[in-house]
Design a protein around this nucleic acid. Structure first.
Lengths: 227, 227
DNA sequence: CGCAGACTGAAACAACTGTTTGAAACCCTT
DNA sequence: AAGGGTTTCAAACAGTTGTTTCAGTCTGCG
């Protein structure tokens, strides 16, 4: 019931970072919530940035290991044959949304992660990139193998869109309430919903790009809209 | 070439808020960039929060007016008949992404907006809700009319996912670079890409929800995956 | 001109930030 | 019991935050 100070700080930090964001969360809030001394953060982690990094790393490495493990399992099962897109989506996004359903801390962390992915803070981005590098490479390869007819750039964008949908799915009720009252989401239902949406988007017919998008110069005006 | 102080502050604030986020952008950064005195912000706007609100309101009201105008045009054209989903998506998301393509400020603002939508800051959320209320109501009605076979809650989630994809589409290259090197996105191509993704997701087959999602209690384990 | 009202300017305000310090308390092995 | 390494604690540090103050400047109108 009373873990050591270091863990209490990590948990409190995670909770508060979700609630208030990176900058608005102060060390004094964290140490108060963790029932620790203010100096404890700098003692155990060295700095606020290092603490934030530790908060992310603790969950993120585990999450990405799970993703790769899930991909490994599917690939072993398929034995060299390309995977079905549904399986790859399941391995990447399914694992994430399952972690988001975990009440024991995973939930709040995933909300934080989704929000931070687009945050302009330099130091977060840099180690996010490092932490994601391997898993991205693996899944890119799997997708290209499964959908050889989809151009690489096209697919990257679709993957990006899928990340956006995932992020909002996780940040969930908070933002969704803008649209209208909704029940607290049932994890299984959310999983099913996001999955069918993602696969629908991924497998949508390729857009017919105007030739201008290749010549990249001649931009014919679309009308008088933006004054 | 030299608008009045108030406008210079608004422009500078918008630019810096996109770059650094809400909390990390200080009044001193803003007034320096705007070549104005520090006190000018509190003189013209009253407080930092009021300034931020003004930055949002300036573009957001216009954006939502455009959305409603586009919807009006489609509905007049259809004359009472339900719109095609593609048209409704176009009216809501197409207008947004076109504004995001506008170099003259619209671009940076849309990035800011997409990021803020999930931000936990209370005061932003409260006036975002007010600003969105009307447009949300209109589009909800149009969608329900166009897709009567889709349950309302199901649709709200899909709309939410679409907002996520839009947000990431706009925040664009910054986050996408995590996935790999990509060209600076051509607005027309991005528009076409997002559209086909969104419609693919929107029209995806309805997920088969386990009966547990209604009984909401009995949660049968999905296998040994999540330990 | 004169003078009110709108605006700008430099300086100071209290409150809060992350970090550092050095002494006290604790724990464990010798 | 003594000692050394680890951890906690209260206090203070310098720097930055949003906001306020008040003297100054500008502008337009009688």
């Amino acid at each position: 019931m009373e873990p050591d100070t270091r863990s209490r700080i990590l948990d409190a930090a995670e909770r508060l970072l979700v609630q208030h964001g990176l900058d608005a969360t102060t060390l004094r809030m964290i140490t108060t919530e963790a029932q620790a001394n203010l100096a404890a953060v700098n003692y155990h982690f060295g700095s606020k940035e290092a603490l934030i990094e530790a908060v992310f790393r603790r969950r993120l490495t585990w999450l990405n290991e799970q993703r790769i493990a899930a991909l490994d399992a599917f690939e072993a099962e398929a034995g060299g044959a390309p995977l079905k897109p549904r399986q790859i989506v399941e391995a990447f996004f399914g694992v994430a949304i399952r972690m988001a359903a975990d009440k024991g801390g995973g939930q709040s962390f995933m909300r934080l992660l989704g929000r931070t992915y687009t945050e302009p803070s330099d130091f977060v981005r840099s180690f996010l990139a490092a932490e994601y590098a391997e898993v991205i490479a693996r899944f890119k390869a799997a997708f290209f193998k499964a959908l050889p007819d989809v151009p690489q750039e096209e697919f990257l964008w679709r993957f990006h869109f899928m990340m956006g949908a995932l992020s909002y799915a996780i940040s969930g009720a908070d933002a969704l309430r803008l649209l209208g009252p909704v029940d607290e989401p049932d994890p299984d239902a959310l999983y099913a919903r996001l999955m069918s949406f993602l696969i629908g988007g991924l497998r949508a017919p390729l857009p017919t790009l105007a030739p201008a998008s290749q010549a990249k110069a001649a931009k014919k005006p679309r009308g008088k809209r933006a004054a």
